[in-house]
Design a protein around this nucleic acid. Structure first.
Length: 499
RNA sequence: GGGUCGUUAGCUCAGCUGGUAGAGCAGCGGACUUUUAAUCCGUUGGUCACAGGUUCGAUCCCUGUACGACCCA
């Protein structure tokens, strides 16, 4: 290795690689796997210094060399511990040399005994130091870490290794999901896994990803929702089921959308949509107790109170209230169309200029003028049946579905309803949806004869709900972008360097 | 999809009304036996995202493209 190498990116890589080669040339195994730690860094911090040898393994984060003595900071999953080597100490000369050969980011195994420095820091006096895995790429800046949000997503391993808060965030995500499982397990729900590859993409209004099975010569879709399979399980006799897993929607990417996302769906026989709203409040109360201070979270610039007793408001009333209309006006196609026309050049205005149903007009105006203003948790109820193809119709009004959506911080968090279990009505809805699809509606559902046949075997009366887990985690952790709570969000390929 | 802003060393960032670039960290060389973002001295490192245009001359002005951030849809 030359002494005066240029320090550009490629050179930095070559110099580190040369150091690894030197290790091998000195007779040491390049990537040894026989080092077994006795302690985690954090458990050492609680132990009293004595002469018993300890072994820890982890990544070198800092090195401070002082001629005949040197310190380093080693980080493992639990925390960090300081290492020390000096010429005068027994068996330590070799360690001082080894330490001098290291680069920031290298993974090492350290053996030695504990002592405290003058400043009181617990430190391992090294008796052996082994390079376990060479870090060939320079790690991020040692104080500020990786700042660029693009790089943080693209090279998550670098963001994680250099930022303990980043590691902590994803630990919390796991803890939230574990809490969800515990909540449903305690209440007798069975966790199941249903197919992610569907012959017909159903259960939601969304464009699917297509794929193909070669040997069956079969077109398949990545699921947009697990709903229709979970309800088949109700037919089969499981009375309470839930699934936490990925769904896929072939739509845009934004701070609240990723093409693959994690959804919780749960179903209970002999329950109604109102029971699901109660259960949801209970669930959030439990999460807030564990993950939010005083039941409040700061999210998207709002201070949100998650305490139970959430507002429940009918869709018509909500539209009326936020638009200064009477409920009668909120049911008037002409009034709704006029209001939507105010959003000139807008998708909503364009859609309203087509031939939408009354329910579609109401949903457009709701999305435009109400949804974003529902900051504290709010259940919106009584959706139009025409936009709720899998929900049960109210007994006293077939135009209204027994359905609700939950809004928090202006963001849709959950969608639930009493399930439509009358196969005749479901078949009729599918036929209407299929007609809309044939007419060009890319989000309309297709006729699912297999699902109708399942309903014909009798599905018990039931209610179900879906909760977007990524948004739930965003809420609980106060994150403003879905990419902050997904380890590996979808990113475009990096731009080519060469022109 | 639309608007605004951004892209400069491995990382974090400066760079004025146009005269081909600087710092900190990392790296390299040296000093230093209890440091804590160690310190001190010296030093390497750049197709200024990419492609065009204007100009005697472009990191800077203009156009386009790629990627991203924020806002709107």
């Amino acid at each position: 290795m030359g002494n005066k190498e240029a320090a550009s990116g490629e050179k930095l890589y070559q110099m580190r690689k040369a150091k690894l080669d030197e290790q091998a040339a000195a007779g040491r195994i390049r990537y040894p796997n026989d080092f077994s730690p006795t302690h985690a860094a954090a458990t050492l911090a609680q132990a009293e210094p004595d002469s018993t040898p300890v072994r820890v393994a982890g990544r070198i984060m800092l090195i401070r060399q002082m001629g005949k003595s040197a310190f380093a900071t080693l980080a493992d999953a639990s925390g960090h511990i300081q290492l020390h080597a000096a010429v005068a100490e027994d068996g330590c000369r070799d360690c001082l040399d080894r330490l001098g050969e290291l680069d920031l980011g290298d993974i090492v195994g350290a053996t030695g005994s504990l002592f405290r420095t003058r400043r009181g820091e617990l430190t391992i006096a090294l008796t052996e130091l082994r390079l376990l895995a060479k870090c060939l790429r320079p790690p991020p800046e040692k104080h500020k870490g990786l700042v660029d949000p693009e790089l943080r997503s693209r090279k998550r391993h670098l963001a994680l290794m250099s930022d303990p808060a980043e590691r902590q965030r994803f630990r919390k995500r796991s803890a939230i999901i574990a809490s969800l499982r515990a909540f449903f397990d305690e209440r007798g729900y069975l966790e199941v896994e249903t197919p992610m590859m569907h012959p017909i993409a159903g259960g939601a209004a969304a464009r699917p990803f297509c794929t193909r099975h070669n040997s069956l010569d079969m077109q398949l879709y990545l699921r947009i929702a697990p709903e229709l399979y979970l309800k088949r399980l109700l037919v089969g006799g499981y009375e309470r089921v839930y699934e936490i897993n990925r769904s896929f929607r072939n739509e845009g990417v934004s701070t609240r959308h990723n093409p693959e996302f994690t959804m919780l769906e749960f179903y209970a026989a002999y329950r109604r949509h109102t029971d699901m709203m109660d259960l949801t409040e209970e669930l959030f109360a439990q999460l807030a107790e564990r993950f939010a201070d005083d039941g409040r979270v700061e999210w998207l610039g709002h201070s949100i109170n998650l305490a139970s007793g959430w507002r429940r408001i009918g869709l018509i009333d909500a539209i009326a209230e936020y638009n200064g209309l009477s409920p009668e006006q909120a049911r008037d196609e002409q009034v709704l169309t006029e209001r939507l026309a105010g959003f000139a050049g807008d998708k909503a205005a364009a859609a309203a200029a087509g031939r939408p149903s009354l329910g579609q007009l109401q949903m457009l105006l709701f999305d435009k003028t109400v949804a974003g203003k529902l900051i504290d948790p709010t259940f919106v109820t009584d959706f139009p049946a025409s936009v709720s193809p899998l929900a049960r119709r109210a007994d006293d009004d077939p135009e209204i579905a027994e359905r609700f959506e939950l809004y928090i911080g202006g963001c849709e968090m959950a969608n639930g309803f009493s399930e439509l279990n009358d196969p005749a009505i479901q078949a009729q809805v599918f036929r209407a949806q299929a007609a809309a699809a044939a007419a060009g509606d890319e989000e309309a559902m297709h006729y699912d004869a297999d699902y109708i046949e399942a309903l014909e075997a009798a599905m018990p009366p039931a209610a179900g709900e879906g909760i977007g887990i990524d948004r739930l985690v965003m809420l609980m952790l106060g994150c403003s972008s879905i990419r902050e709570v997904m380890l590996f969000p979808l990113v475009r390929p990096a731009a080519e360097k060469a022109g």
